[in-house]
Structures are given as structure tokens and as C-alpha cells.
């Protein structure tokens, strides 16, 4: 796979975020709380996914004023979300000099057929995926970090687990296939052969592989990391819980000590109430965020 200097720098920042927690914030005060708790980065957005789900309407890129205040408040990287296919929101965020852009299914898609051509940007992008084909299509478009989509704002880990397990299983399967079989798999995955061959040879994605969508507790964070995620995004899970500071700290600890149940127990004590959760099966098809994008 061709790694030019610009792409190496994009992937390089993703490497620095490994083992960390990226927290959704909607204002500078939340960003300060996140940084104080040990967040490795913050994600600026207008409303957390649980509120987008509840209030409905079109969800767009966050206000520039709010993103700028967040950037001026914290010293950790600041990410912001752009709508799927909305390359002009992305250009605005790049001009603002955010550190990473999330082309996100949590916002209302701007284009139902095309994702952003992320290779044209100097700022790095992260994109969601539910399976290996989707992950590789996003990487082919220039994404330097992949995260599971999960089901944002649900407080339910089941979809993130499904997605990380699917991606990891599909990667393992590639490693035992012959060359001609990989050509066939590239067709099935709807992904470039070059990337399929890279994964077959290395058994992992060519960019860091994180998890998002439904993480609400320290145990949730540890679970997806045990399954192969290298860091976690927490959206509504922190600021929709009863004690955001304590929960943010606990999830930071869980992301580092994800293999250590004793430490996880310690992190899980006296946490207060988690955010309310939703059963995925009871959501109507149109309410699912993960089916946005392809």
C-alpha cells in the first residue's frame, strides 16, 4: 500500500491516540472536564447522538464559535464531525485547523451515494464501518483511522460488538486465502484488491482500528478493546450519565487496563447511573444511524 508522507502523518496522529478515549463534547466546559479526566482527544459536535435521536431534525457540523472555544480551551487534539459526503463542511473544518475530521453517520448525510474524497485533504479523517469492505472503501478514499459505527446514542454496546467482531473475523479469513481467492474476495468486499492483499498479508487494517457507538460503561470499553479495538470513542455515554467526571475517568482507566478485571472493578465502583439505553430491535429501520453511508 502506498504511504506518502502526508498519509503517514495522518496515520501517525491516530497512532498517538491508541489506548486512549476520545470523548464527545458540545461546549468548552465539557471539553475541559474531558481533558481533566484524561481524554486523549475530544470530538466537537452540536448535540450528542442521544439528543440528535430524541430531538430529530437535521444534524450538521457544530458551530464554528463552539469548536473554536473548545480548541482554545484544551491542549489535546480536537476533532469535529462533518456530514457524510459534505466536503465543504470538511473544507471549513480544515480551514479552522481542527486536528481530525469524523465523516460521521451520526450527522444527517449530505450525499446518499458519495463519501468525501479524503485524499484531497491535508487534515486527517476518521470514518465509521460495520464490516471490512466498508472499512477498506473508506481507507481507499483516504481515511487514516477506522472506527466501528455501532449504534450511536443507544447506550447499547451490541452493535459495536457486532461490527468489531465482523471486521476482525473478516480480516482473519483473508489471511488463509490464496492469491486468486483474494481477487474474488475483493469483488465480494467491494474493496480495492491492493488493500485486500495488504490485510491478507498483515492480518490487520493498514490504519488504526478504533471502536465507537454505544459505549456507556468502563466494562463496555474493555470489551471492545479485548475484541480488537485499539482505542474507544465515547459519545453520549459520558455527558448523559449522572456523574460525567467520574465516568470519564473510569473509562480512561478501563481503556488502559482493559485486560485487568481487578482494575476494571476498581474503576467501576461508585459510578452513579449510566445513560439510559435503547433496545436496537425496537428502533425503526429509519431510526438507525449505522445504515447511513455504504
Amino acid at each position: 500500500m502506498y504511504m506518502d508522507e502526508q498519509f503517514r502523518l495522518k496515520v501517525g496522529l491516530a497512532e498517538m491516540l491508541k489506548g486512549g478515549v476520545i470523548m464527545d463534547v458540545t461546549n468548552a466546559e465539557q471539553a475541559r472536564i474531558a481533558e481533566q479526566a484524561g481524554a486523549a482527544a475530544v470530538m466537537a459536535l452540536e448535540r450528542v447522538p442521544a439528543d440528535i435521536r430524541k430531538e430529530g431534525g437535521v444534524a450538521r457540523m457544530a458551530s464554528i464559535k463552539v469548536i473554536r472555544e473548545i480548541m482554545n480551551t484544551v491542549s489535546i487534539p480536537v476533532m469535529a464531525k462533518a456530514r457524510i459526503g459534505h466536503f465543504m463542511e470538511a473544507r471549513v473544518l480544515e480551514a479552522l485547523a481542527v486536528d481530525y475530521i469524523d465523516e460521521s453517520e451520526v450527522l444527517t448525510p449530505a450525499d446518499e451515494e458519495h463519501h468525501i474524497d479524503k485524499r484531497e485533504f491535508k487534515v486527517p479523517f476518521v470514518c465509521g464501518a460495520r464490516n471490512l469492505g466498508e472499512a477498506l472503501r473508506r481507507i481507499a478514499e483516504g481515511a487514516a483511522m477506522i472506527r466501528t459505527k455501532g449504534e450511536a446514542g443507544s447506550g447499547n454496546i451490541v452493535e459495536a460488538v457486532r461490527h468489531i467482531r465482523t471486521i476482525v473475523k473478516e480480516m482473519k479469513q483473508l489471511t488463509v486465502l490464496g492469491k486468486e481467492e483474494l481477487v474474488h474476495e475483493a469483488k465480494n468486499l467491494q474493496a480495492p484488491l491492493e488493500l485486500v492483499e495488504w490485510v491478507a498479508k498483515n492480518g490487520k487494517l493498514p490504519v488504526p482500528n478504533f471502536s465507537a457507538g454505544g459505549i456507556a460503561t468502563p466494562a463496555d470499553a474493555s470489551l471492545v478493546m479485548q475484541l480488537g479495538a485499539e482505542a474507544v470513542f465515547v459519545g453520549s455515554g459520558i455527558f448523559k450519565s449522572s456523574d460525567p467526571e467520574a465516568r470519564a475517568k473510569a473509562i480512561v482507566k478501563a481503556a488502559t487496563y482493559f485486560k485487568d478485571p481487578a482494575k476494571l472493578l476498581e474503576a467501576s465502583e461508585e459510578l452513579g447511573e449510566a445513560m439510559p439505553g435503547l433496545e436496537i430491535g425496537k428502533l425503526a429501520e429509519g431510526e438507525l444511524m449505522q445504515t447511513r453511508g455504504w
Partner: peptide
């Protein structure tokens, strides 16, 4: 290693 020094300090 590289990473976020604030995060490492907290931990």
C-alpha cells in the same frame, strides 16, 4: 512513547 502527555500524567 508518544501520545497525550496530559492523559499519561492522569494515569
Amino acid at each position: 512513547p508518544g501520545g497525550e502527555s496530559t492523559t499519561m500524567l492522569k494515569l
